[in-house]
């Protein structure tokens, strides 16, 4: 069994060893329900699709994923177990990926809990299930991107509160990177090319493209590269800060 898989299993089990996992999943499902049916007007729209459900995912993730990610490395540093983990015969990459994949799988489990909404919409009408599958995939990819940011920031501090707040802020910027709220901060002093580059990092833009049912390889590659880059940065940050 590879070390990544062993760490993955330990980490995933750790979520369910405490009430954390159950509380997270219950709150996630409650909020998706509230957002979809009340704020999203699922019934009043009279359309057999899950747009009112997926539209709120970025905003849910914005708060909930930093809460998952904040403990991933800060706790390890605070408890001193990082010294144990990193003197075992594994590579840094195996440790970082094992922990990331476990947290991602955990979010996937929470997301799988929303399948009843999918069944409901199929009961009520005839939605385009292809679009829904694509949107689920996009949602999961986007969750991975939020998670990678949160993991990197968690690696930089022992304080989980700081990790949470900073991750929230950074994720917020990436969520809305394509919108005036964020772009106006940069457009006045950065060259247009760079402003456009920032805009192209927007989670919302990439997610909405996938959620429309068009799985463009560029959007998938964006999220995959984004995750890989932040995890690579995490490994560097862990190496620099592990002994503090």
């Amino acid at each position: 069994m590879s070390a990544t898989k062993i760490i993955f299993r330990r980490e995933l089990a750790a979520y369910f060893a405490t009430p954390l996992a159950y509380i997270f999943i219950i709150i996630f499902l409650m909020l998706t329900g509230v957002f979809t049916f009340y704020l999203g007007n699922f019934f009043a729209r009279g359309q057999a699709d899950l747009q009112s459900f997926f539209n709120f995912h970025p905003w849910l993730y914005l708060f909930l994923i930093p809460a998952i990610a904040m403990r991933i490395w800060s706790e390890e540093r605070k408890a001193g177990t990082i010294e144990l983990l990193l003197t075992l015969p594994i590579t840094m990459g195996q440790a970082v990926w094992g922990k990331f994949l476990a947290a991602w799988a955990f979010i996937a489990i929470a997301l799988a809990g929303t399948v009843p909404i999918w069944i409901t919409v199929n009961y009520l009408g005839e939605p385009d299930n292809g679009i829904i599958v694509a949107a689920y995939l996009g949602s999961l990819l986007m969750a991975g991107a939020y998670l990678a940011v949160g993991i990197c920031i968690s690696a930089a501090t022992k304080s989980q509160v700081i990790a949470f707040i900073v991750s929230l802020m950074v994720c917020f910027v990436f969520t809305l990177a394509g919108f005036p709220l964020v772009l106006d901060m940069f457009s006045s002093w950065l060259p247009a090319g760079l402003t456009e580059a920032i805009a192209s990092l927007s989670f919302l833009t990439h997610f909405q493209a996938i959620a429309k049912g068009v799985i463009d390889l560029r959007d998938v590659i964006f999220f995959a590269a984004f995750i890989a880059a932040w995890l690579y940065a995490s490994a560097i940050v862990i190496d620099l800060k592990k002994a503090d």
Partner: peptide, 27 residues
């Protein structure tokens, strides 16, 4: 084999789970 200062261990695991985890990592 290394016992770090303060003997850190994963507090959410039982002793048996922890030893199995280390055994797995050790191959």
């Amino acid at each position: 084999g290394y016992l770090p200062e303060g003997a850190p261990g994963y507090s959410d695991m039982t002793v048996a789970q922890f030893l199995r985890f280390i055994a797995d990592i050790r191959g």
